[in-house]
Amino acid sequence: MDRRTAVKNMLIVAGGMVLIPSCLREEGGASIELSRINVSAKQEDLLADLVEALIPKTDTPGAKDLNLHLFVMKMVDDCHSPEDQEVFLQGLTQMNEGKKDFEAFWQKETEEGLSDFAKLVKNRAIQGYMNSEYVMKNELIYELIPGRYNGAYKIEEING
Protein backbone atom coordinates (compact mmCIF):
# COMPACT_ATOMS: atom_id res chain seq x y z
CA MET A 1 0.00 0.00 0.00
CA ASP A 2 1.55 3.33 -0.96
CA ARG A 3 1.51 6.26 1.39
CA ARG A 4 -1.29 8.12 -0.35
CA THR A 5 -3.62 5.15 -0.10
CA ALA A 6 -2.67 4.74 3.53
CA VAL A 7 -3.55 8.38 4.22
CA LYS A 8 -6.78 8.02 2.33
CA ASN A 9 -7.79 5.00 4.33
CA MET A 10 -7.09 6.73 7.60
CA LEU A 11 -10.05 8.52 9.06
CA ILE A 12 -9.70 11.92 10.62
CA VAL A 13 -11.58 12.56 13.80
CA ALA A 14 -12.69 16.15 14.35
CA GLY A 15 -14.23 16.70 17.73
CA GLY A 16 -15.49 13.13 17.71
CA MET A 17 -16.88 13.24 14.20
CA VAL A 18 -15.25 11.18 11.52
CA LEU A 19 -14.18 13.10 8.41
CA ILE A 20 -13.06 11.67 5.12
CA PRO A 21 -9.44 12.55 4.42
CA SER A 22 -8.61 14.14 1.13
CA CYS A 23 -5.83 12.97 -1.14
CA LEU A 24 -4.97 16.55 -2.00
CA ARG A 25 -2.98 17.29 1.12
CA GLU A 26 0.34 16.37 -0.40
CA GLU A 27 -0.41 18.60 -3.36
CA GLY A 28 -0.94 21.60 -1.12
CA GLY A 29 -4.68 21.14 -0.58
CA ALA A 30 -6.78 20.66 2.53
CA SER A 31 -6.49 17.43 4.49
CA ILE A 32 -10.21 16.69 4.38
CA GLU A 33 -12.50 16.41 1.40
CA LEU A 34 -14.30 19.67 0.68
CA SER A 35 -16.85 20.05 -2.06
CA ARG A 36 -17.70 23.73 -2.34
CA ILE A 37 -14.66 25.66 -1.13
CA ASN A 38 -10.96 25.41 -1.83
CA VAL A 39 -8.71 25.67 1.17
CA SER A 40 -4.95 25.29 0.76
CA ALA A 41 -2.77 23.34 3.16
CA LYS A 42 -1.23 26.64 4.21
CA GLN A 43 -4.63 28.17 4.94
CA GLU A 44 -5.65 25.10 6.87
CA ASP A 45 -2.56 25.33 9.07
CA LEU A 46 -3.25 29.00 9.62
CA LEU A 47 -6.84 28.28 10.61
CA ALA A 48 -5.58 25.63 13.02
CA ASP A 49 -3.37 28.20 14.74
CA LEU A 50 -6.18 30.73 14.74
CA VAL A 51 -8.67 28.45 16.54
CA GLU A 52 -5.94 27.17 18.85
CA ALA A 53 -5.45 30.77 19.99
CA LEU A 54 -9.19 30.92 20.61
CA ILE A 55 -9.41 27.61 22.50
CA PRO A 56 -5.85 26.75 23.56
CA LYS A 57 -4.50 23.54 25.00
CA THR A 58 -4.20 23.72 28.78
CA ASP A 59 -4.29 20.72 31.05
CA THR A 60 -7.21 19.73 28.82
CA PRO A 61 -7.22 19.35 25.03
CA GLY A 62 -7.27 22.46 22.87
CA ALA A 63 -8.61 23.23 19.41
CA LYS A 64 -5.81 21.47 17.54
CA ASP A 65 -6.09 18.33 19.66
CA LEU A 66 -9.79 18.20 18.77
CA ASN A 67 -9.27 19.16 15.11
CA LEU A 68 -11.72 22.03 15.52
CA HIS A 69 -10.24 23.81 12.49
CA LEU A 70 -11.34 20.85 10.36
CA PHE A 71 -14.80 21.07 11.87
CA VAL A 72 -14.97 24.78 11.01
CA MET A 73 -13.90 24.03 7.44
CA LYS A 74 -16.41 21.20 7.12
CA MET A 75 -19.26 23.38 8.34
CA VAL A 76 -18.31 26.33 6.12
CA ASP A 77 -18.10 23.94 3.20
CA ASP A 78 -21.47 22.24 3.74
CA CYS A 79 -23.66 24.50 5.84
CA HIS A 80 -22.97 28.07 4.77
CA SER A 81 -24.13 30.25 1.92
CA PRO A 82 -21.73 31.22 -0.88
CA GLU A 83 -21.62 34.70 0.68
CA ASP A 84 -20.42 33.33 4.01
CA GLN A 85 -17.90 31.14 2.23
CA GLU A 86 -16.52 34.20 0.49
CA VAL A 87 -16.16 35.97 3.84
CA PHE A 88 -14.37 32.94 5.22
CA LEU A 89 -11.94 32.54 2.34
CA GLN A 90 -11.20 36.26 2.16
CA GLY A 91 -10.56 36.30 5.89
CA LEU A 92 -8.09 33.44 5.56
CA THR A 93 -6.33 35.16 2.66
CA GLN A 94 -6.05 38.42 4.59
CA MET A 95 -4.68 36.62 7.62
CA ASN A 96 -2.12 34.95 5.47
CA GLU A 97 -0.93 38.35 4.27
CA GLY A 98 -0.80 39.95 7.71
CA LYS A 99 1.56 39.09 10.52
CA LYS A 100 0.67 35.83 12.13
CA ASP A 101 0.08 36.80 15.71
CA PHE A 102 -3.16 34.99 16.42
CA GLU A 103 -3.57 36.09 19.99
CA ALA A 104 -3.21 39.67 18.83
CA PHE A 105 -5.86 38.95 16.20
CA TRP A 106 -8.41 37.80 18.79
CA GLN A 107 -7.50 40.59 21.15
CA LYS A 108 -8.04 43.23 18.48
CA GLU A 109 -11.26 41.60 17.26
CA THR A 110 -12.55 41.31 20.82
CA GLU A 111 -11.81 44.93 21.60
CA GLU A 112 -13.12 46.38 18.36
CA GLY A 113 -16.10 44.09 17.82
CA LEU A 114 -15.91 40.87 15.83
CA SER A 115 -15.63 41.05 12.05
CA ASP A 116 -17.89 38.71 10.06
CA PHE A 117 -14.92 36.42 9.49
CA ALA A 118 -13.98 36.28 13.18
CA LYS A 119 -17.62 35.77 14.18
CA LEU A 120 -18.01 32.84 11.81
CA VAL A 121 -14.81 31.13 12.90
CA LYS A 122 -15.48 31.76 16.59
CA ASN A 123 -19.09 30.53 16.53
CA ARG A 124 -18.28 27.35 14.64
CA ALA A 125 -15.18 26.61 16.72
CA ILE A 126 -17.16 27.03 19.96
CA GLN A 127 -19.93 24.83 18.57
CA GLY A 128 -17.42 22.16 17.60
CA TYR A 129 -15.80 22.37 21.02
CA MET A 130 -18.99 22.26 23.08
CA ASN A 131 -20.32 19.37 21.01
CA SER A 132 -17.04 17.49 20.90
CA GLU A 133 -16.78 14.00 22.25
CA TYR A 134 -14.16 15.18 24.71
CA VAL A 135 -16.31 17.92 26.29
CA MET A 136 -19.53 15.92 26.19
CA LYS A 137 -17.94 12.90 27.81
CA ASN A 138 -15.57 14.55 30.28
CA GLU A 139 -16.66 18.08 31.08
CA LEU A 140 -20.33 18.86 30.47
CA ILE A 141 -21.77 15.38 30.28
CA TYR A 142 -24.36 14.66 27.60
CA GLU A 143 -26.75 11.88 28.54
CA LEU A 144 -28.18 9.94 25.63
CA ILE A 145 -30.48 7.99 27.94
CA PRO A 146 -31.42 9.99 31.06
CA GLY A 147 -34.15 7.58 32.15
CA ARG A 148 -35.62 10.14 34.54
CA TYR A 149 -37.25 13.53 34.91
CA ASN A 150 -37.31 15.66 38.01
CA GLY A 151 -39.03 19.00 37.66
CA ALA A 152 -37.88 20.33 41.03
CA TYR A 153 -34.21 19.48 41.34
CA LYS A 154 -32.34 21.47 44.00
CA ILE A 155 -29.19 22.94 42.52
CA GLU A 156 -27.31 22.78 45.85
CA GLU A 157 -27.44 19.03 45.54
CA ILE A 158 -24.78 19.04 42.88
CA ASN A 159 -22.91 22.32 43.08
CA GLY A 160 -22.54 22.40 46.86
Partner: peptide, 17 residues
Protein backbone atom coordinates in the same frame (compact mmCIF):
# COMPACT_ATOMS: atom_id res chain seq x y z
CA UNK B 1 -31.37 6.55 17.05
CA UNK B 2 -28.30 5.84 19.18
CA UNK B 3 -26.05 8.58 17.86
CA UNK B 4 -24.36 11.12 20.11
CA UNK B 5 -24.33 14.78 19.03
CA UNK B 6 -20.69 14.63 17.98
CA UNK B 7 -21.37 11.71 15.68
CA UNK B 8 -23.49 13.83 13.36
CA UNK B 9 -21.46 15.14 10.47
CA UNK B 10 -23.00 18.60 10.88
CA UNK B 11 -24.01 18.42 14.53
CA UNK B 12 -27.62 17.86 13.50
CA UNK B 13 -27.70 20.86 11.17
CA UNK B 14 -28.74 20.20 7.58
CA UNK B 15 -26.40 21.29 4.80
CA UNK B 16 -27.07 24.61 3.06
CA UNK B 17 -28.00 22.96 -0.25
Amino acid sequence: TNMYPWEFEHRNELPYQ
